[in-house]
């Protein structure tokens, strides 16, 4: 890694466009809500900046902490399941015959080009009490089982929604994985299992970490999946935030909740980047 001073022209050329877009069309707009999160509502549509911390303090009410904790563990389980299913898929695509790769890659992504709501309806049709899965199970004398409207259904739904966020980064790192490392490991007497855990997995770690970030974080903020597939206590923090911006019409509180979510993740990501920059070599 070079210092930016080594080649300032290249640095600024690469640095400017994305930063410009992010500042103008993301950070500045976000400024309004940041400002709002320290404001009081003074009428139906207006807020007044008072520097209050009340909105943030309100987020530490037990009910919101319970919901946040629930969102975290549901997202964590969904992310883990996503990794377990996406890894073989990405691996399979990368080791498939070259001519099949584009089609396989597309086939993995294609379901996600269908509108989320329509996909969720389809998922309900498969899993509901009189759905297709129970129909098939019925043929072998099992069920019917109540599979929807519980936390498990939300987790399965989230896996189904965020699968491409895991598959694609994994694909990007596993593809053109330097196979000589794997051969070396096998030649030196490592078993396939050892090779996988000692060589393949560490080499694809950047993709795994990226996939985890890209799945876990959006899971935290999801609201449609818990609303449609969850039972009576499916509420997640994404639903609470959505409610503040919509039915409750409380943008300051909604902003405060969103910013809390962002501070925590921002902190975690910055910490990771900081640690990575200090440890040499493995820089993810």
């Amino acid at each position: 890694m070079d210092s930016w001073k080594v080649n300032p022209r290249v640095f600024w050329t690469l640095f400017t466009p994305g930063t410009f877009w992010l500042v103008l069309f993301f950070l500045i707009p976000l400024g309004w809500l940041f400002h709002d999160s320290f404001s009081d509502k003074i009428s139906i549509t207006e807020t007044q900046f008072t520097g209050t911390l009340a909105n943030y303090i309100r987020a530490f009410d037990a009910v919101y902490l319970t919901i946040i904790w629930k969102s975290v563990w549901i997202s964590a389980v969904a992310t883990a399941l996503c990794l377990l299913t996406a890894y073989p898929i990405a691996f399979g695509i990368c080791f498939a015959p070259a001519k099949w790769k584009p089609l396989l890659l597309l086939l993995v992504i294609l379901p996600f080009w269908i509108n989320l709501l329509i996909r969720t309806y389809a998922l309900i049709a498969v899993f509901r009490t009189q759905g297709y899965l129970n129909l098939v199970l019925g043929w072998v004398g099992l069920g019917p089982y109540e599979m929807l409207y519980n936390d498990g259904a939300v987790i399965v739904g989230l896996v189904y929604v965020y699968m491409p966020f895991m598959v694609l980064p994994l694909y990007a790192t596993i593809e053109r994985l330097d196979r000589s490392f794997l051969e070396a490991s096998l030649d030196l007497g490592g078993s396939q299992v050892q090779t996988f855990f000692k060589v393949t997995l560490p080499l694809t770690m950047p993709g795994i970490v990226t996939g985890i970030i890209l799945v876990f974080i959006p899971c935290l903020g999801s609201f449609l999946t818990p609303a449609m597939l969850g039972g009576a206590n499916a509420i997640m923090i994404g639903n609470v935030i959505e409610d503040q911006f919509k039915a409750a019409n409380d943008w300051p509180f909604g902003s405060a909740l969103s910013f809390l979510l962002m501070y925590v993740t921002f902190g975690a990501l910055a910490l990771r980047a900081f640690l990575a920059s200090r440890s040499k070599g493995v820089d993810v």
Binding site: V63, V240, D243, N249
Partner: peptide, 18 residues
Amino acid sequence: GEDATKLRSEIWTRVQAA
């Protein structure tokens, strides 16, 4: 009014989280 809306929203959140 906004206060009543807020009260109802909080009740609803508590019911769902209970």
